[in-house]
Simulated assay, not measured.
Amino acid sequence: MVAQPEITQRDLRNRSKEIMDAVQQGQAFTVTRDGHQIGELIPLRTRRRFVSRTEFAAMSRGAPEMSIAAFRADQDAMADQAANDPYAR
């Protein structure tokens, strides 16, 4: 694991544009005050909204086989089907 560079609170204030540009590029920092670590400045993960059919198929190839009957039995065992059914007698 690579250690994050430490920056002081003063550095963060004085060099905020430079530091935020680095965060946008994927760099993380540990922020210190009076020599004590007080927080981390980390980039947000971006979520992809679309996965191509080819990519999904490639990811799915390694998935374990699944029994639909066992899946439904697990669901039935965990859910009380009649609890919220207004038509149940």
Rank of each mutant, 00 (worst) to 15 (best):
F71L: 15
T32D: 01
E40L: 07
I19Q: 05
R61I: 02
A63Y: 10
E40G: 04
Q25S: 07
Q9D: 09
T32E: 09
R89A: 14
V2G: 05
T54R: 14
A77L: 13
D74M: 14
R10H: 15
R45L: 08
E55T: 11
G26S: 14
A63G: 06
S60A: 12
P64F: 00
E18S: 09
G39I: 06
V51G: 03
L12P: 02
I68G: 00
R53C: 01
K17G: 03
A3F: 11
L41T: 03
I38S: 05
S16P: 00
E6C: 04
E40C: 03
M78L: 15
Q24W: 08
D34R: 09
Q37S: 12
E6M: 14
T30N: 13
A79E: 07
G35N: 06
P64I: 04
R13Q: 13
R72F: 12
Q27K: 12
Q27W: 03
L12A: 08
F71W: 05
T30H: 06
P86W: 06
A70R: 13
G62Q: 14
V51P: 00
R15C: 00
G35I: 11
R45A: 14
S52N: 03
T8D: 04
A73C: 01
A88N: 02
D11W: 00
R45W: 01
R33Q: 10
L12H: 08
T32Y: 04
F50A: 10
R13K: 11
I42E: 14
Q25W: 01
S16F: 03
Q9P: 00
A58F: 06
K17T: 11
A28T: 09
P43V: 10
D34S: 10
P86Q: 10
A73I: 01
D85C: 02
V2D: 13
G39V: 06
V31N: 02
A57E: 14
T54P: 00
D85F: 10
S60C: 11
S52D: 06
D74H: 06
K17P: 02
R49I: 06
A58N: 09
F71Q: 09
Q9H: 10
A83R: 08
D34A: 10
A83G: 07
G35M: 03
A88C: 06
A77W: 01
T30F: 12
P43Q: 07
Q37E: 13
Q37I: 08
I7Q: 02
G35C: 07
R13S: 15
T46E: 07
A69Q: 04
T54N: 13
Q25L: 06
L12D: 01
R61F: 02
A28N: 04
T46R: 14
L44G: 05
Q24P: 00
A3L: 10
A73E: 15
V31M: 05
G35H: 07
